[in-house]
Write a protein that binds this DNA or RNA. Structure first.
Length: 570
RNA sequence: UGGGCGAUCGUUCAAUGGCAGGACAAUGCCCUUUGGAGGCAUUUAUCCAGGUUCGAAUCCUGGUCGCCCAGCCA
């Protein structure tokens, strides 16, 4: 049962949907419903690329009234862990999907073993004593055929005896394998007597030490699909070459023929989606764990403040094909900004405070101005924000010598403090080094709320926080984890680690926030007006003393001024 | 140099023999109590060469280019 709704109103056609629709139309499976599956290996955390596979598998089944199983492809005990099994389930639910059945390839080990015996009896599988190295040599190359193993024509009884003893644990790791007897001269290397079982005296996260032989992917996946009556087994492109083998096992065994269909993986600019490399980043502590907000994992995006709705909308819009391209990360960011723009509560926060003293404002006066919680959504209501004589504004919002097209505060210039008053800069106070540390202004009492009765206009509106009421927070500003659009592109002698962005995390420790933010809870998302979207990090302790608030920047707001500045070649 | 898959705006996905369209990005203008958001407009594409057809991105032939495969990983 799926809980997510179709994201885009007009779903463009794609070859996967077409294939399913055609099978439904022709009643290929009779009264049986469409069945799909999402088959992760629990050897790492799910990333944005998996989100695509999840949306495709769950989405298509849902669209055609079918079901989706979550099946862990746990046939390699050396790489798989329970931690990953748990995290994966959590992430799929977070994304908005729920499965019909929770399955494990390891649940099928007994059945797979029986099927292996069946293939041996039929003369279609044999135990090979060749070493891994020898098997490689015998396999041939891309252009040369392989040659038969000297053990290829063992008698059925001997194969049976040996395989049973492999299972009993009589042989050491790597000493023997069970192989399918197909064709050592096949141009498809997957058909050159592929290994079905290897000996691995390893403890499996679910079956413990019950088994010491483990099936290979190819001998497990298709049959698992078949057992679950999967009608459409959608996987990534690199498995296309495996399809003949997938079909061969199913045909030899005479079991339900699931249909494999391949599609392209998702790739994103400035993003690495190799599980091996992501694991390396975690293990070498280049990032702070799988859920580091800079990671392209679902848990990383979640902590960063991304929403499942935006990720789904992005994945659905990016589409699916059989070409391998790279989607611009800006597209993902667009969908996230769009989503948050509509939903996120607004607040005022000053990241780099500059004190402003309003000289003609009564020293002990505090008034509360009415502020919309979300201008995009009147239903979000309003709140009261304290205003007083001393406030903080963003350091960037004042220039003693304003460059061309700079509309913000500078000496003699009048600007609007959002929802409050017009102020005009009169003088500055500098430290010994000549840095502006304080700006003195005057305000127009008639402009309360942000409009002047005489109708005069100001070019700029700025956010602010009352100094006396401000609360402190740590703010973590994230940037791209890698400096290159393709992080895997490396020069001679370098690795992808050399493409790590040294400035991917900037910590601001002295941000000043409006007091209402004190009530936020980890996971709460906000738009800090004119700055960006932020999410309260789990490192926060909003309810303890001392209270600690840590906000992660999800994304910065688009910044026209920054673009102008950049274009003017500074 | 074997086999498999693919090629459409800068990027990505459509068009299923009948006006090449959307999204992202970019550019310009309008609007704006967020230089946000929004609105309008603009630019740019069928890998190449032949062929079939009234008509080809689509079908055929031949090239070119790209990706994947030689784990006892998945």
């Amino acid at each position: 049962m799926t809980t997510a709704n179709p994201e885009s109103p007009a779903t463009p056609s794609n070859f996967l949907r077409d294939a399913v629709a055609e099978d439904v139309r022709t009643r290929k499976y009779g009264d049986a419903q469409i069945q799909t599956r999402f088959p992760p290996e629990p050897n790492g955390y799910l990333h944005i690329g998996h989100a695509k596979a999840i949306c495709i598998n769950f989405g298509l089944a849902d669209e055609f009234g079918g079901k989706t199983n979550l099946r862990f492809d746990d046939t390699n005990p050396e790489k798989e862990e329970q931690e990953y099994v748990d995290a994966i389930q959590h992430d799929i639910r977070w994304l908005g999907f729920d499965w019909e059945r929770l399955c494990f390839a390891s649940d099928y080990f007994p059945q797979l073993y029986e099927w292996a015996l069946q293939l041996i009896r039929a003369g279609n599988a044999y135990v090979d004593d060749l070493s891994a190295d020898e098997i490689r040599q015998y396999r041939g190359t891309l252009t040369e055929p392989g040659k038969d193993s000297p053990y290829r024509n063992r008698a059925v009884e001997e194969n049976l005896d040996l395989f049973v003893r492999m299972k009993k644990g009589e042989f050491p790791d790597g000493s023997r394998v069970l192989r399918a007897k197909i064709d050592m001269a096949s141009p498809n290397l997957n058909m050159r007597d592929p290994v079905m079982y290897r000996i691995l005296h390893a403890t499996h996260h679910r079956t413990g030490d019950e088994w010491c032989i483990y099936p290979m992917y190819d001998f497990a996946h298709g049959q698992s699909d078949s057992i679950e009556h999967v009608t459409h087994s959608m996987c990534s492109l690199e498995f296309a070459d495996h399809q003949p083998l997938y079909k061969w096992y199913i045909a030899q065994l005479g079991i339900f023929p699931s249909q494999q269909i391949e599609f392209d993986r998702l790739s994103l600019t400035y993003t690495l989606l190799s599980k091996r490399k992501l694991l390396q980043l975690v293990q070498e502590k280049r990032v702070n764990g799988w859920d580091d907000p800079r990671m392209p994992t679902l848990s990383g995006f979640r902590r960063r403040g991304f929403t499942p709705e935006a990720i789904r909308a992005f994945v659905n819009t990016a589409g699916v094909s059989r070409t391998n391209g790279i989607v611009d990360i800006e597209m993902l960011e667009h969908f996230q900004r769009d989503d948050l723009n509509h939903r996120a509560a607004r607040a005022m926060a000053v990241l780099h405070p500059l004190k402003v003293v309003i000289d003609n404002y009564p020293a002990d006066q505090v008034e509360y101005v009415d502020v919309a919680n979300n201008p995009e959504d009147p239903a979000a209501g309003t709140r009261q924000v304290p205003f007083s004589r001393e406030i903080y504004i963003e350091h960037d919002d004042f220039r003693e010598v304003p460059p061309p097209k700079y509309y913000r505060l500078s000496p003699g210039k009048e600007v609007r403090l959002r929802n409050a008053y017009f102020i005009t800069a009169q003088s500055v106070v500098k430290d010994a080094a000549g840095n502006v540390i304080e700006v003195h202004c005057t305000y127009d009492p008639a402009s309360r709320g942000g409009n002047s009765p005489d109708g005069r206009k100001v070019k700029s509106t700025m956010h602010w926080v009352s100094a006396a009421h401000a609360i402190a927070a740590e703010i973590r500003l994230y940037d791209k984890l890698f400096t290159r659009p393709d992080p895997g592109e490396v020069e001679e002698g370098k690795t992808f680690l050399d493409n790590l962005n040294p400035d991917s995390l900037e910590i601001v420790t002295d941000a000043k926030l409006e007091p209402s933010l004190a009530a936020s809870k980890p996971g709460d998302r906000f738009q800090f007006e004119r700055v960006g979207y932020f999410c309260l990090d789990p490192d926060s302790t909003p309810d303890s003393t001392p209270r600690k608030l840590v906000f992660n920047r999800t994304l910065a707001l688009k910044d026209t001024w920054a673009r102008i500045e950049k274009k003017s070649g500074v």
